[in-house]
Design a protein around this nucleic acid. Structure first.
Lengths: 339, 339
DNA sequence: ACTTTTCTTGCAATCGTGTGCAATAGCATT
DNA sequence: AATGCTATTGCACACGATTGCAAGAAAAGT
């Protein structure tokens, strides 16, 4: 690999002059500057960022920790974050924390070792696993913003979607359509999911709609979602609408309903949450809650950049909240008349 | 940020000793080693990878260039690559080249500047944009493996899926089911798509099935896919099967068919390509071509690691090909009897 | 007691850039 | 001609870690 020194030798000057020439410093004679620049570009010189980073004590890189990227929610987020980071002149160091317990800590360690300028942490379903690591990082002054629904993080910068409001809007929508027997179906709930449910249930309560236990189904695997759907259909009084609290779940539910010969929305209303691209790929296109991911990404990156660039880092922790909205598509209809 | 020197001062030794102690070198007295290790961990010392990388002239990082991550094909690939890289002890530097023409070059420049140990390049729909950059990189000895369907890359290491075989298998499947009027629908084709079509057409040819121009629809946007579907349905003799050569397209097609009151597979057979998770989310679950992404990722990373670790870098370029397989699900049925 | 070996440690150079400071030369000012 | 100013360049150190080499002490051998 070719260095400043190599160029310097060719040009018959010192490496300092080359460094300055390539930085377009006014401290270099205009002609030699030009000459060096041409020489360097011909030689295919490329600055060694590692050395530069060491000297500059900054890497112009932000670390992004995300549980996985096979779950379609995250890629959308990653794409937005990557674009924003690039715009701001930062590289992205992606770390996938997976579902493994230790991995989240390992990711943070690695990012710290690599001296990223700041860290964006998206906690997974199991919540904030590496709590002590995060606290240590924050204490040592590494800019860090947390996304997600984790408790006891008042001392950290956070960005969160107001899932309760989303759930509320969704329930309201179903009630307005006339539904009274509404089921909830999902995988093991974590904090964010919990908020969705709370909001949803609050709206039901206000409308005087009851939610018997038989209409609340928890499934762990895809196959269990199938069994859950069958279970709901087998009830003496089956629901007229199902709230699957993630779009991918809703897609599965629609699939299993189709297996049972039930068409959506004619015979059953289904709604999801998050408004992933997936929601427009399935048929019927899904009514869901959306519009929050973009502002979440914007706030996420924006807050981190503020922390990185601010000289005074000890302002009070911020908690930014983004409100999602109802996205009405084709998966809902009024309930059929009872016969 | 705390350095070796700081620990050294606390321990009353030189920084060299600390370095050796933390590396668990046998050149340090067992007791002092222990003492230093404890001291360092208490102080929360974390090695500065930037400095270490500079000295080691290696970063234990591989760069991954991917067009985007919002197209569901890529996240699956990224996830697999990330997992493999981590297993091998490498970090991942993700770069999104987007659709912009210059961006691909910029990504490569950036990765080279950061002195990644090797580069994985996935070319986008428009083919290999940064051809001269890639050649320069390869010539300068940076390990680089290319994925994708790009012409004139015999001098580079490549990993490719045998899309022609996939297309062939798909057509065969449709023909066996009895279909004779089969439409092809897709977005602007690039090289990989081209192979899919060639294989597909070859199988049709062999079976003596003709493919009139009216049954080949190209769409640029999602909306045009809708118009394309309408167009096909409006034909005097509409097709009995549609090959949408990406799963996401197939999903859209099924959606538009539903809009027109056509049910899949009873009234129309639809097949896709790639076997994304999406294929099981939509209903009916999609018959498609799959199983290639995992081995693609394995070969991709494996070949790069071989190049990185091999002392002799001038072996002949390799071209690894992965054969995909037919995945039969629920989106196909024999054609209806003509009335 | 003297030499040789073994352990342990520190010195100093290195990786490639960036930059404060000093040095030199050229030119203008008086 | 002496002085001051400016433009240009190089020296040398710093960033934080690794590592070959030498040095010193302790132990062992004769």
């Amino acid at each position: 690999m070719i260095t400043l020194e190599d160029i310097a030798r060719q040009a018959g000057v010192s490496h300092s002059t080359v460094s300055r020439a390539l930085a377009d410093s006014p401290l270099v004679n205009a002609e030699t500057k030009k000459r060096i620049q041409i020489l360097a570009s011909e030689a295919g010189y490329q600055v060694n960022q590692v050395a530069r980073n060491l000297k500059a004590r900054s890497t112009k890189t932000i670390g992004l920790v995300v549980p996985e990227v096979s779950n379609p929610y995250y890629p959308k987020l990653v794409q937005l974050i990557a674009d924003l980071a690039r715009e701001a002149g930062y590289s992205l160091q992606l770390q996938l924390s997976g579902t493994d317990q230790d991995a989240e800590s390992a990711c943070l360690e690695s990012l710290r070792a690599q001296r990223v300028d700041g860290i964006l942490l998206v906690s997974g379903e199991s919540g904030l696993v590496a709590r002590e690591h995060v606290n240590a990082l924050a204490a040592s002054g590494v800019p860090l913003v947390l996304m997600g629904w984790v408790e006891s993080t008042e001392h950290l910068d956070t960005v969160t979607g107001d899932d309760a409001k989303g759930g509320y809007a969704l329930a309201q929508h179903l009630i307005r359509l006339g539904h009274r027997r509404i089921a909830i179906l999902g995988k093991r709930p974590h904090r964010g999911i919990y908020d969705r449910l709370q909001g949803f249930k609050a709206a039901l309560d206000e409308a005087g709609v009851t939610l018997p236990g038989a209409l609340q189904v928890m499934a762990k695997t895809d196959a269990e979602v199938g069994r859950g759907v069958a279970q709901l259909l087998a009830l003496p009084e089956p629901p007229t609408a199902i709230f699957a609290y993630q779009d991918s779940l809703a897609a599965l539910v629609i699939g299993y309903l189709a297996d049972a010969g039930i068409s959506v929305p004619q015979q059953m209303t289904v709604v999801g949450f998050d408004n992933l691209d997936l929601a427009t790929y399935i048929s019927p296109r899904l009514t869901t809650i959306g519009g929050h991911i973009e502002p979440l990404a914007t706030q996420f990156v924006g807050l981190l950049l503020e922390r990185i660039q601010k000289a005074a880092p000890d302002t009070a922790p911020q908690h930014r909240v983004v409100t999602p909205q109802l996205v009405v598509r084709k998966s809902c209809a009024p309930p059929r008349e009872k016969k």
